[in-house]
Nucleic acid binder design. Structure first.
Lengths: 207, 207
DNA sequence: GTCTATAGAGCGATAGAC
DNA sequence: GTCTATCGCTCTATAGAC
């Protein structure tokens, strides 16, 4: 702690929090460092004192966020639990994670709009996902005849599509479905049951 | 036609095409009217001669795009064909539509990022979707015991999530799956079969 | 209709005092 | 560490000639 009861964190984290908020709400170009400074209750000079530029401030936020977004997922893909249990758990936990961080999906996805940014290719995400335990499980269970064969990528995209998409389309979804904050949460709670059931119904279907 | 073999359309549509491209690739804030002008091979003054401002140019593009995005969908929701056939047809046609216009989803979704924009609430989309034939079909088929009960909104979001999400997450998907342009198309062709099967497996499952 | 030139505002960044 | 003041650039928009 610093010295007095300002009910605030230290300056650097205050700036980070403010930047996170503004960047997530408006995207890189839409976010103005003036707004971030105001939100953090400091002046622009101080932003550049802590982070050298808008771009670096953004990268700092982005790297952290991206780590959360994928770290969470990768961990779950590798858990040593049966496939069906895993599906339920992934949907449940990832939904909770997104309910607590509803702006993350759009933020992460917009950054990669037209291929752009490469500063996530350093991370070995490709390999990590490709070699995840889940992949082995999908193959093994299919060989045993417990599920039908499915490419891991289809599995992942189907789960993610069903869980993440509502957050990306949230404003439109909320409008069409007349959902307020609570209504949206309820909708997502319903999906915690629906989505695993749907995935499993597909996998288990005798074809 | 105008007068000579400039192999170009008339100025106004050239500007519109250019604006569409730039706005879709970079979003409203990221798009600079300089770039649009250059892309259209005219100067900035001419942009403002045809459309009074960047904002109006954007609205013009947006309204049109949004109409395509939802018009397409709403039409399909109301077609008088059996539910199962409809599911297959929606996925097939909507996938084709998005393959031909891959940037539309991100474009439409980013506009509504944090609730913002209201200039789509004029359209009676809410009512149109809520009163779509599909809704009746889902209720009727459930009453007949042919499918399990499902809220129309879950149905729509599930279909959309599975079809639209890959386009929104395309750069990341392409990276993880090592997919080039052709690979991505192939992936989406596979989903034309997978997604309807998944939806129907869920709906038909004796619970 | 189309151009050049430029106004006028907003932006990111820094110098320099405290 | 934190501030005020300001620079220099980029952006949108318009005036005015052709």
């Amino acid at each position: 702690m610093k010295k007095m009861a300002e009910l605030d964190q230290d300056t650097e984290t205050r700036i980070k929090k403010a930047a996170e908020k503004v960047f997530m709400e408006r995207g890189y170009e839409g976010a103005k460092i003036r707004d971030i400074a105001e939100e953090a209750k400091v002046n622009i000079a101080l932003l550049n004192y802590y982070f050298r530029s808008k771009e670096q401030l953004f990268k700092s936020i982005y790297t952290e966020t991206f780590g959360k977004f994928f770290g969470q997922m990768v961990t779950m893909l590798n858990e040593e639990i049966p496939l069906e249990v895993k599906v339920w758990k992934i949907v449940d936990q990832y939904t909770n994670f997104l309910l607590a961080n509803p702006l993350i999906p759009m933020f992460v996805l917009t950054v990669h709009r037209t291929g752009g940014v490469d500063f996530f290719k350093d991370k070995n995400i490709k390999e990590v996902i490709q070699s995840a335990l889940l992949t082995k499980q999908l193959i093994e269970e299919a060989e045993k005849g417990n599920i039908r064969p499915i490419k891991p990528l289809h599995f992942i995209i189907s789960v993610m599509g069903n869980v993440v998409f509502p957050f990306v389309a949230r404003p439109i979804l909320a409008y069409i479905g007349d959902l307020d904050e609570a209504g949206f949460r309820e909708f997502m709670e319903e999906r915690k049951k629906l989505v695993p059931e749907m995935i499993m119904a597909y996998l288990k279907q005798r074809s």
